[in-house]
Every structure is written in structure tokens, then in C-alpha cells.
Write a protein that binds this DNA or RNA. Structure first.
Lengths: 228, 228
DNA sequence: GCCAAAACATGAAATATTACATCTTTTTCG
DNA sequence: CGAAAAAGATGTAATATTTCATGTTTTGGC
């Protein structure tokens, strides 16, 4: 609870809201939120569960998981700051998928009723929420296309580019996923991930050392995305 | 133009609108629309083009196409009655993908500005539009998962189930797609589609004669969707 | 009705991918 | 710290998929 106070003064969510909703509405929203820490591996939203919360993620990285007849699939990765649960909210609060912390995260639980009230009273806030949803949709679309119509090499190359550009914004980063999780993301076997990553290393496109990854030849990697 | 008048009295779009927007708003919308016939193969919305129209489709079946570095991909199939262009509208009017008639279609072009005005003035209409968008998102998600994490057999089985359930609502129908188009939908080679369909026929799951398809063993087909 | 183009069909060879078996390294936890 | 579990690595055999070559059938103008 003391954390909440210290955070909220500089809270990005507040900053965003300030531009689109009034002080009164924000205070309403504010009173309904509770600060929460999620440890690595913890489930923030669980697939098929009915939720009455959205979560504004302040720090951390999460994975969107879908369990398909017992098989786990990773749909996408997202990082703070971001609003989680919008797609679920639009789906009668029944969660499409699970959202799981892949590193320690901090977030604020937002009451769904309050959120709904503000949404219907503030066209510009609604529009912004819609925009955020559209962006997620477009991102999903891109993954979708990469995953469905490329070979494994192209899919893994796409995942590396995605992590580099959208999550870490750097050509050097520490893989947040295990090889098995990359396989669940790329829709292939774990061995295939290992072999493909090693091939990229041998070809001089990336340098890999355990979980440390450096993209050496971005143009080459982009080419694999398209052709692979 | 005479067609417009005769249609509009019993227009489904009007019926939907009547429940959520007032007569004045609808008349506004009505004055801005133009009736249009699209022949088989015609492009209704073109990828990357900036559009200032939405299209309410009265009759016909369309495919959502995405051109990825010169390769054509089918994202999904939709049929009348439906509102086309919502995702594009939310994307600053830049079309995500092309929408192409796969049989003769009739539709009404809706002016984007008028649509926008009504959207911002009518929370319930906006909510309904949002809902429609969410449904499309969910549908895409399902395709996405099927395509990415199943083998070819499962993907083709999924497409057959999709056409049977959502497009024709019957276990007997005439394939609206060529084998090549099914391949573009399933993300595999044309030959693979042909062989897989024939295998399903030999296994007694479907009966196929050119473009005529009958699903004989729905449970079996569903099993292939999950396992294949 | 005829011709050309497209669609459909088929089999074989080349390639991609998975599954399995086994081993090494790293991480986790009492 | 040390044992157990998980993750990572590697090679091979089995399977799935594509590509190519070729032939047949259907479709769409003129």
C-alpha cells in the first residue's frame, strides 16, 4: 500500500489519463486500484476465467499464452508500460488467453466497472483504448502472418527482430524465454529452435552465448524473415 | 440508383442501426451511401490504400487478402450481412488488407466522416461496432492458432469446418475457393491441399466431387482439427 | 464450339521438420 | 553445498512438406 502512494504521483497511467479524462474521473479510477507485485512465472490473468479487473503494468515483461487442448502456445510478448486485459474486457470479461509474468512485474489492478463508466463518458478515452486495441490487433496480425506462412527459420528470425525492436530496443539483449518457450512462440520443436539459433550463429547473423544474444547482421536477419 | 431505394426499406443495416441510433442520424448516414455491385474477383478494399468509406455488404462472400512480399495470403472469409472496413477505419483509414469478392456481391458504401460522427455521438452504436470488431479479432485469433500450431491436415480440416459452420451453415456446400486459394488460406502448397482433401475422401471423412463437398463425419473432422 | 488458360491431379525426388535417445550444463531448492 | 530438475545441446531415424515434372480436366472468352 505505501508503494501505491509513492508510485501514483509519477504514474504513467495517470499521465495518459490526465490528457483524456478529468481529475474527478481519474480520482474515481484511482480509488479503485490496488498495487500488486507479480513474481516471475505468476499468472496475471488466467485463460477462461471471468475477470472484473484490468491491469496497468508499470514494470516488467509478460507473455500472452493460449492453452490449446493441453498444448501451451505463446501468442505474443508485451512489456510495461501497457494496459493488460482490454481484449478480455471486450470479450465479456472472459479471458481469451492467460497473461503470465516472465520476469518480476509491478502493476495496478483497475476495477472493471469504474473503467467501463469512464469509457462510456469519455469518447476520447474510449478512442484511445480502441487505438491501443487496434495496435495489439495489428501486432497479432503480423505474428500471425509470420507464423503461418513462413518456415521455421523465418519465424525464429521474426521473433528475434520482434524482441530486439519492440521489447528491448537494442541489438544486444538477454533472452527472456527458454528455448522451449521460443518453440511455443514459433510453433516448432525445441530442438529446431536450438539448431536454428546455432545456424544463425554459425552464419554470423547473430552471436549467441546461452541467453545472451547480439544481432550482428540485421539486414541478413530481415532477409531470413522474408525468405526463410 | 433505383436499386438503392428498393433495398433500403428492408435493409439489414438500417434494422441494426434503428436499434442503436436515431432516425435523424440514420437519415444522415443514408444520404451518404451509394449502392454498388461487385463482380466475382473485384477488389472492394485494396491493401495500403487510404479509404474514406466503409462498406455494408448485403449479399455475397468475400475474402480478406494480405500480400506479403509478393506472396498472396488469405486471412479469412466473410459473408453478408457484414460491415467491412472497420479494422481499416480504426487504422487511420489505411487498409490493413484487401477485401475481394469471391462471388458477386452487393453493398453500400458508407461515408467515413458521417460514420465517425455517429460513432462519437452514440455510445451504444460505438459499443456495437467495437463488439463486431472484437468478434472479428477472436475469429482471426482462432485461425491464427490453427494455422500456426497445427500440421497441414489440421489446418485444412479447420478451414472445412469453418466454411461449413460459419459460411454455409450446412454440411453440404460448393467450395467457393480454388485449391490454390485454399493453399493460400492454409499456408501450404496447392498439391498438399489436393492430396489432403483426397485423403479425407478416402478416409470417409468427407465426400468430394470437384468443388462439391459433403462433410460425412463431423466428429472425425473435428478430431483432425485437434490432432492433425 | 473451339482454343487457351487455369485448375486439378499424380508421383518421385529433394528438403524441412519432428521425434527420439543420449549427454552436458545450468538452475532451483531443501 | 549438493542433489534433483530443468534447460540446453547433438546426431540420427522417421515423418511431413515442398518442389518439380508431367498429364488431364474444367473454365472462360471469342
Amino acid at each position: 500500500m505505501p508503494l501505491k502512494t509513492s508510485h501514483c504521483n509519477s504514474c504513467l497511467f495517470k499521465t495518459i489519463c490526465d490528457r483524456t479524462i478529468g481529475k474527478e474521473d481519474f480520482d474515481d479510477l484511482y480509488r479503485s486500484t490496488t498495487f500488486q507485485i507479480f513474481r516471475k512465472g505468476e499468472i496475471i490473468l488466467r485463460q477462461h476465467m471471468k475477470m472484473s479487473n484490468l491491469v496497468f503494468l508499470h514494470t516488467g515483461i509478460v507473455k500472452f499464452c493460449y492453452n490449446n487442448y493441453g498444448k501451451d502456445i505463446i501468442l505474443t510478448i508485451d512489456k510495461a508500460p501497457t494496459l493488460l486485459g482490454l481484449a478480455n474486457y471486450l470479450n465479456n470479461n472472459v479471458n481469451f488467453f492467460s497473461i503470465i509474468a516472465i520476469e518480476d512485474c509491478e502493476g495496478c489492478m483497475i476495477d472493471e466497472d469504474v473503467f467501463q463508466r469512464i469509457l462510456t463518458n469519455n469518447p476520447s478515452f474510449a478512442l484511445q483504448a480502441l487505438n491501443s486495441f487496434t495496435n495489439m490487433f495489428r501486432q497479432s496480425m503480423q505474428s500471425f502472418i509470420s507464423l503461418s506462412y513462413n518456415q521455421v527459420q523465418g519465424r525464429i528470425a521474426n521473433i528475434l527482430v520482434f524482441l530486439s525492436k519492440h521489447i528491448y530496443e537494442s541489438s544486444v539483449f538477454r533472452l527472456p524465454l527458454t528455448r522451449k518457450e521460443i518453440a511455443q512462440f514459433a510453433g516448432c520443436s525445441t530442438e529446431n529452435v536450438i539448431n536454428t539459433l546455432r545456424k544463425f550463429d554459425h552464419d554470423g547473423i547473430i552471436r549467441i552465448n546461452g541467453k545472451e544474444i547480439e544481432i550482428l547482421d540485421e539486414k541478413g536477419l530481415q532477409l531470413v524473415c522474408r525468405m526463410g
